[in-house]
Design a protein around this nucleic acid. Structure first.
Lengths: 245, 245
DNA sequence: GAAAAAAATCGTCATTTACCGTAAAATTGC
DNA sequence: GCAATTTTACGGTAAATGACGATTTTTTTC
């Protein structure tokens, strides 16, 4: 079996498993639909059902979707993404070897063409703290992580793997206290091309020092809400693609 | 999260995913019920339903089990195994790091106490070909693999990982042509304590040579059918345990 | 080859799913 | 702040699930 098909299958199984085991399959379906950046209408169209059906699941009116429904759902969101160049699936592919728990992932995607760090920062109202000289470097995707959740479930080698999986990409940490704990895990060559912190309570001096030492650009996003930032990223993502929605 | 719970969760997700994505959820449910060595009645009892319900799924009268059903099913078979000492779950645990496709696995289990190679061979009418001097070594479990399937989907490093995952255990290869292809993959220190071939069409001289060189006991089972052999293993497995069925 | 164990069959029934369509509410874009 | 987009809410319907239990068939065991 070609490796792409294998990744696809593993991702499919993971999503399907998560939905079936969830206490609220609908919520989980929504999580994945959103992870794939699909409005209910598009998904509904692809499934050949009316949008209210999707809503009925997600809002919990239908509490126990049958395996057929789950299968159809999973295969459709993956196929739709593949038809658009596989931005999400490919981004997941680099995570798959890593066994990162998906619940820490808020958003993930590749860009269809590389964009500069500057462009990304402009889009999410980012203020650069260190590494100004690298603003013109190109990045090819991003990963948004719930930091407080990640600190709960990830060991320091877990963080390391996260860094490795985001090589040439932006790692966006939301829900950050000081930024210190994730950054200290950084050692080794392979690491993200950009760190963005969001929702920092009190920025730690050490955090900046670490970023300097490791020569990774570090920025803070001034967006009010996480949701807002995700939406901006989504727009950016779409701009790079030839998606026809 | 403790590592045991993590393994449990991953296994659960994998099974649930497989069922939901299957073209025949019922067949897949049966596969897993059998993997856990549970008769329909016991499973039905644990689920608090009548046995015909299980049969209705497995035979396909109910074609699209709801997520609730899948969840209950998966959690029940795993919990039942854990209550019996986790013979199956633990055996899977050593596979989990390895990403072995479960469709090549026909049967897998730990023993509650180690048994000698001799004992195992007696139980499945095994004839030792090489490594007679090691008959008194203890083994702690077994893995039965469909070789023709494995040759299809496993690379040679895949086989290597299989060998590593069966350290101190018996690796039972059924559906074998010559035995050559799997054995040539063997290099390195970590490997099963015993190879058993079943259904060999024409034993290759090289196969025996390889086993000799690597000093791994090699045997052939003279059981007529695979099913028969699996049943014998099942009995053996039960003897080592304090299961109260 | 009979007894026991396990699995399959199937009629039946209450509950839910899977679906539509429409109207209302919420969210987002400028 | 208004238009556009997206999501919910909900009444309704046919089909399927989820369940039982009695009976038959198949498989295993001694």
């Amino acid at each position: 079996m070609p490796v792409a098909a294998q990744v696809r299958q593993r991702l499919a199984r993971r999503i399907a498993g998560e939905i079936s085991l969830s206490d609220s399959p609908g919520r989980t379906m929504r999580k994945w639909r959103e992870m794939f950046h699909l409005p209910q209408i598009h998904l509904a169209e692809a499934l050949g059902v009316s949008p209210s059906v999707i809503s009925d699941y997600e809002s919990g009116r239908r509490q126990s979707p049958g395996s057929k429904t789950i299968k159809r759902f999973v295969e459709t969101i993956i196929t739709l993404d593949e038809q658009n160049g596989g931005q999400v699936v490919n981004a997941f592919q680099r995570m798959m070897g890593v066994e990162i728990p998906t619940n820490i992932i808020l958003d993930i995607s590749e860009f269809s063409q590389g964009i500069t760090i500057k462009q990304l920062l402009e889009s999410i109202r980012g203020q650069i703290l260190t590494g100004e000289e690298l603003l013109d470097r190109e990045i090819f995707g991003y990963l948004t992580v719930d930091t407080s959740e990640a600190l709960d479930v990830l060991s320091s080698t877990g963080f390391l793997k996260l860094f490795e999986a985001t090589e040439d990409r932006a790692l966006i940490l939301v829900n950050v206290l000081t930024g210190r704990s994730p950054l200290v895990a950084m050692k080794g060559e392979i690491k993200p091309s950009l760190f963005v912190l969001h929702g920092v309570e009190q920025l730690d001096y050490l955090t900046i020092e670490l970023a300097k030492r490791e020569q990774v650009p570090l920025a803070i996003s001034r967006m009010e809400s996480v949701g807002g930032m995700l939406r901006r990223l989504h727009v950016l993502r779409k701009q790079t693609s030839n998606e026809r929605h």
